[in-house]
């Protein structure tokens, strides 16, 4: 009897870890892995899109560029009563190119620049938008410049003004990650069905 009891206890001790191991690591479906990786990828894309280097120029229909982020202290609209106007390049007011050259000024607080310098189209609003709002916008061809998500990833990897976000000149914090990494995050997220946060 004692021997039987001993064998039972031993068997229990051997089998219990296996039971708990099974209970703890419920088999994960490949689809769920993909969804969780997609959500992680999107959260990184959102970090980029909502970063001041990007969002400061993806502004609403007030057409006012923003000055925000660690480089600027308090958040404000662009100084000197500057407006991009409905043209988003300042045709109606002062052309952005009046002060913004094709490259960043090396002077402290000098104007940043890129071969193209303009506000993003008004429907591509990112300024103070939630992750869900930007996610839905970037998937919507009527609000993303008529692009597929593959084209969005390509745009991030190729566009000069987009690239400025990672090379913003002296004294400005660049957007996180890199253009290549961000394009890869978009591709991963898109290939998993481009889920948006709830």
């Amino acid at each position: 009897m004692k021997i039987k009891l001993f064998l039972l206890k031993t068997a229990a001790l051997i089998l219990m870890p296996a039971f708990f191991a099974t209970a703890q690591s419920v088999p994960v479906q490949p689809d769920e892995i993909s969804q969780s990786r997609a959500a992680e990828a999107w959260s990184k894309v959102y970090q980029v899109f909502s970063h001041p280097r990007c969002a400061n120029c993806h502004v609403p229909d007030d057409n006012l560029p923003r000055w925000s982020g660690p480089s600027y202290g308090k958040t404000s609209v662009h100084g000197m009563n500057i407006s991009g106007g409905q043209s988003r390049i300042g045709v109606e007011t002062v052309m952005c190119s009046t002060c913004h050259a094709h490259s960043n000024s090396d002077e402290p607080h000098g104007p940043p620049g890129s071969p193209v310098w303009m506000l993003a189209p008004v429907e591509m609003l990112w300024w103070q938008q939630s992750s869900k709002q930007i996610c839905e916008q970037i998937k919507d061809p009527t609000r993303n410049g008529g692009r597929t998500l593959e084209e969005v990833a390509h745009h991030i990897q190729e566009d000069e003004l987009v690239h400025w976000g990672w090379d913003p000149g002296k004294g400005r914090e660049p957007a996180p990650y890199s253009a290549k990494e961000t394009a890869d995050f978009v591709t991963l997220w898109a290939n998993a069905g481009a889920p948006c946060p709830e």
């Binding site: 052309m95 009046t98 094709h102 002077e107 607080h109």
Partner: peptide
Amino acid sequence: GIAMCGACTVHINGQPARSCSMPVGQ
């Protein structure tokens, strides 16, 4: 010297430009 005051304004092809911040090569 940083395109903030406008004293250096010239025209390039008729458009105003702050010459203090415009590299001549551009």
